[in-house]
């Protein structure tokens, strides 16, 4: 008969599989979206690597993590963005309620530096968003990150391109993101410990109107004061915008 502390230690480990018992992963944080929380059995896994495979940039892949980012940044934790594909736009982050001084952008020169910086950030208990732009990290590299994450107290997010889907991943969670239409994200569960893959949900990212406007029917901006002498300062008129003239 095993001694009690030994058993307790074993059961408290993140990677002990306990059949269909869903209390297996207790360390989760809410995503800020109820349907997504249900899909992920409670929220983003803490102390684990989560991989987000995005079909393309600009579909709202980062907005999905804004509540998590806001929460960690306001808890005075450092948030490291490793190799983001574009420049983060500060006014948008400020209006989302994220203190800029908690954000740190790190640029790596090669895959070795990328892996080192990611591991350091995880071991330093920072919230890590990593983008694998330069080269797709190898399985062993990701395994290293997953191991480091299991010792940390923060979730780790890895943004990959669809090319990553060809290979298997040691990440605890892997989801695919696609846009159904503007503002609506289709999330497919590819891998989650304790749940069968394949589940899909739709997540709406905002309530902006999605009505499409033809270029020659753009509205006239009436808020700008009408200036008489300078032609170039005149507000837009529909005929100015007619392109085929």
């Amino acid at each position: 008969m095993p001694s009690k502390p030994l058993l307790k230690n074993l059961l408290s480990r993140q990677d002990t599989w306990r059949g269909r018992n869903r209390s297996l992963r207790k360390h989760v944080i809410t995503t800020g979206n109820n349907s997504l929380d249900r899909l992920l059995l409670g929220g983003w896994p803490v102390s684990a690597l989560s991989e987000l495979v995005s079909q393309q940039d600009g579909i709202g892949e980062l907005s999905l993590l804004m509540p998590t980012l806001k929460r960690y940044a306001n808890e005075d934790k450092l948030c490291v963005w490793l190799d983001p594909p574009y420049q983060p736009y500060a006014p948008a982050l400020v209006s989302a309620g994220i203190p800029l001084d908690k954000l740190l952008i790190v640029r790596s020169k090669n895959s070795r530096e990328w892996l080192w910086a990611a591991e350091q950030a995880i071991r330093g208990n920072a919230l890590l968003f990593a983008w694998s732009n330069q080269t797709q990290p190898r399985y062993t590299d990701l395994r290293k990150l997953q191991l480091a994450a299991s010792d940390s107290r923060s979730p780790v997010f890895l943004f990959s391109s669809t090319a990553a889907l060809k290979a298997s991943s040691p990440a605890l969670l892997r989801i695919e993101l696609d846009a159904l239409k503007a503002n609506v994200l289709l999330i497919t569960l590819l891998k989650l410990r304790g749940k069968a893959p394949g589940a899909k949900i739709q997540v709406s990212l905002g309530d902006e109107s999605t009505e499409r406007t033809e270029l020659d029917k753009l509205p006239v901006n009436i808020h700008y004061p009408r200036l008489k002498k300078a032609d170039y300062l005149l507000p837009l008129k529909p005929e100015v915008l007619r392109l085929n003239t």
Partner: peptide, 9 residues
């Protein structure tokens, strides 16, 4: 990584 590798918005 050097000073140039780190930045902040």
């Amino acid at each position: 990584l050097g000073v140039e590798a780190l930045s902040q918005p």
